[in-house]
């Protein structure tokens, strides 16, 4: 049974890295006595796949992971058992059963929405300046940033990857490509806006699958979805 879980990552756990989060879920599944399928080999590991890594320091409204179970467990029961044993500020909000042949989460999720809020409040004037800066930025033909990876420096044009960005009141809102079809990190947008990323708090509002001109939730692939929130 392949189960898709939607969970929130609250402020208390936003400094936990993706690798640490994976380990946290592996251990929570064991504490919850859920019959998780293990990989073969000398060093068996629970079969878990996450949709997308969240940057260290960011919180999230909706993250996703798929887990393979060796026996059927009621979806509501899975949510209950996990929420009983997850650390504070990690909460499973929904569960659904997805077909065994569904494509891997990380292959289908390609869009992310973020809200960025400043740690110290900005004045109305500062917000106005920021709004204009963002408008100007989005008028550019290309937005080249440099990324440092293990294999060296690489230039990436973010322009086609930023789907929407605006300043609706006291936050920056952005909808961007995320995952297999390219990626925009919130700190890259902030840097382009001449903002210091460390002065902003990043909150992921959602992860989506772009299909036929609309955005759908990864939960839509599941037949039955139980809302546990």
């Amino acid at each position: 049974m392949r189960v898709r879980l939607c969970f929130t990552k609250g402020p208390g756990v936003r400094f936990i890295s993706h690798l640490d989060l994976m380990r946290t879920f592996e251990r929570a599944l064991r504490r919850g006595a859920l019959p998780v399928a293990l990989t073969q080999g000398y060093h068996p590991r629970p079969k878990l796949t996450f949709a997308s890594a969240l940057a260290l320091g960011a919180s999230s409204e909706a993250e996703y992971l798929d887990v393979e179970l060796t026996a059927a467990v009621a979806l509501m029961e899975i949510i209950r058992r996990l929420n009983d044993v997850l650390p504070e500020d990690l909460r499973v909000t929904a569960a659904g059963q997805v077909p065994a042949d569904a494509r891997p989460l990380m292959a289908v999720v390609d869009t992310a929405a973020y809200e960025l809020r400043p740690i110290q409040p900005l004045s109305d004037g500062e917000w106005e300046t920021l709004r204009l800066a963002l408008e100007d930025l989005l008028k550019e033909q290309t937005l080249i940033v440099e990324r440092v990876t293990k294999s060296g420096r690489r230039q990436v044009d973010l322009k086609p990857l930023i789907l929407r960005a605006e300043v609706p009141g006291d936050k920056i809102w952005m909808l961007v490509r995320s995952g297999s079809r390219g990626n925009v990190r919130p700190d890259e947008l902030l840097t382009l806006l001449q903002e210091e990323p460390a002065r902003w708090q990043v909150h992921r509002v959602g992860l989506f699958i772009a299909q036929n001109g609309r955005l759908s939730s990864p939960m839509e692939e599941a037949g039955v979805v139980v809302d546990g929130s």
Binding site: V13, F15, I16, R27, A28, E88
Partner: peptide, 21 residues
């Protein structure tokens, strides 16, 4: 700690204190 300090240090989860158990 959470808004000013942890974003700037290495391995910030060392200092959270809210681990399970």
């Amino acid at each position: 700690l959470h808004t000013q300090v942890l974003p700037t240090v290495s391995r910030p989860a060392r200092y959270l204190g809210n681990e399970y158990n």
